[in-house]
Design a protein around this nucleic acid. Sequence first.
DNA 1: TATGAATGAGAGTTCATTCAT
DNA 2: TATGAATGAACTCTCATTCAT
Lengths: 193, 193, 193, 193
Amino acid sequence: MTKCDETRRRILDAAATLFRRKGYGATTLEDIGRLAKLRGPAVYYYFKSKENLLEEVLNIGIERIQGAVLTAVAAQGDDCSHRVRIEAAVRAHLNTLLSHSDYTAANIVNYNLAPKKIKKNHLARREAYNDCWQRLLEQAQLAGEIAGHVDLRLLRLFLLSALFWTHEWYRSDQDSIEEMARKISATLFDGIS
Amino acid sequence: MTKCDETRRRILDAAATLFRRKGYGATTLEDIGRLAKLRGPAVYYYFKSKENLLEEVLNIGIERIQGAVLTAVAAQGDDCSHRVRIEAAVRAHLNTLLSHSDYTAANIVNYNLAPKKIKKNHLARREAYNDCWQRLLEQAQLAGEIAGHVDLRLLRLFLLSALFWTHEWYRSDQDSIEEMARKISATLFDGIS
Amino acid sequence: MTKCDETRRRILDAAATLFRRKGYGATTLEDIGRLAKLRGPAVYYYFKSKENLLEEVLNIGIERIQGAVLTAVAAQGDDCSHRVRIEAAVRAHLNTLLSHSDYTAANIVNYNLAPKKIKKNHLARREAYNDCWQRLLEQAQLAGEIAGHVDLRLLRLFLLSALFWTHEWYRSDQDSIEEMARKISATLFDGIS
Amino acid sequence: MTKCDETRRRILDAAATLFRRKGYGATTLEDIGRLAKLRGPAVYYYFKSKENLLEEVLNIGIERIQGAVLTAVAAQGDDCSHRVRIEAAVRAHLNTLLSHSDYTAANIVNYNLAPKKIKKNHLARREAYNDCWQRLLEQAQLAGEIAGHVDLRLLRLFLLSALFWTHEWYRSDQDSIEEMARKISATLFDGIS
DNA sequence: TATGAATGAGAGTTCATTCAT
DNA sequence: TATGAATGAACTCTCATTCAT
């Protein structure tokens, strides 16, 4: 990794952290520069514009979580139950979002209010991630582990909404991610009755 | 309703709509004025500052949804099952959030990135709304309709996350609120197995 | 005095007080209204504009002090020394400026930074007041009570500067106007050696 | 002197000139920028706020005149009379105020109406300058050159009032500073009788 | 590779002023 | 006689962006 790449990464990290914490609009390039240990305008050496920087942060945010989820699912092997696979996916999602990187949280916080152009460019990645989950659920339904009458689209939206919004209330000192994943999965499959 | 109150309401409505659509930071007072059919600075005749306006929009957003949920639950009477009551609450929440007013959606979109002072002042109302749900779930658990082993705090957070985030993907032409409420409730109580 | 005149006077008094305390620029019509017990725009019923109001305040400020000084001098009669007359003038000037009305102090504070048009209109009155003093000094010099070599123009400017600026440091609980007038007059005539 | 310092100084000079001429309130940052040959917002590269700029102008105004007076007095040596020293102080004061810099005049014009915070911070410097004069007069009185019965505090206030307000009427084509200083000093010590 | 200096667009906000009532 | 409502001009200030170095 050249020094150039390393600086670029430092800027991205700083941006992710600040976009998450204060939001895109309230973060100045000078803020980012400060955290990345250089001056604001230096960002322009590495990125075309602030929007551009946002775009990249958003992309990394999705890539990371998607990578983590896919890896986790694959790691379960082929002979385990779909319930186990889905729980692994939940765990991986939460781990990435809540403890491994600011990029994904920055994505959630900023996607909605991002400039239209950015949203448009980014949409495909979001849908790709949704598709991962959709497939996961479909396979479980095919295998009979999810009842046939369940509306998978709604289930997915509902589940991902819940998973994404954990970052708004999660406190690392109160909740264990492992446990959360287990409980969420249990609630989902068995219900609360 | 005097003309003054009426104009004030028009400004609040405009602000709620725009705060929801573009976010607090990206919404100009001139934008608000345009939508409310007056000039930007006229807003200052009714509100002390833009922040002040935000504060009021946030408050109304919570008041409305809390009012709707409490009313809906009360309307079920005392002799129905807790499952029915909770489903009624879900339906009322979704109705308010998705079709009755921009205030609640504006609240969700903007609360997190709002100025600290505003967040602090608003916190109590958010917690009050959470408490409504907590009580609803506790009563159901006491009555045995929710299994004793269920972690109610996590359940509530999980459920409200999912319910709040519907506004990000809900499309009125694709999803019926009635149906969503029914399905969500069913998934919750019976699980997906 | 009709009610109309009375209100007009209340507005002028309020303006004088505030112009003196905070300056013309920092005083809003709403401020003036508040002190005069009516709303800001009501001022327009009595005055054409804020500038207009300033103009009148400035004029009254000079008229009052000039009236007081002339009256005081005249009251000394014709057979007293010029030194006594001048001391009476000093006393009258200080009394008006420091304890009898805000108009004169408002004049001093605001004249310099007033809009050019106002200054131009007001100049004649200022000069008239200067002329009173100039005549007072000339008569004293003619009578031999002021030495022939004294530059009366400079003396007048010097004396009036000192007298006008008392309002910047005068504290009614520390300094007696009577005594100040006596000491100033003594210093002036006899010197400090 | 770096380019940065040089620009900063240009801005200060412009501000001093305009604050003196039109007053703090009526001076726009754009005005200052125009005179300093840059755009208005560029001022913020050098100063935190307009108030900040005012503060610095006020400070320089006092520093300059105090420096000039102290230097002038010291330059008289130890064996001259106090009358000579005081006349030198008067001359230095007038020279600085009337012909050497706008800062001191800007101070006089704007101090009184300045924001409270600024006034408070600045007060000490004003008092320091007053103290210089107070000491000057005390030494003269000790040496017997000022009569024992003279109220030095009043004398100082009176004298400084007169000296400060020269800037309101002084016209360089009518009055010679040298001569003014001489006459003022003569009047002061010997009286006008 | 990165900074210092500067710009220009645009924001929130204030306020004298107007006008219907 | 006075107010409530609204406007428009202007101001301070912020910030993404540019450019010479």
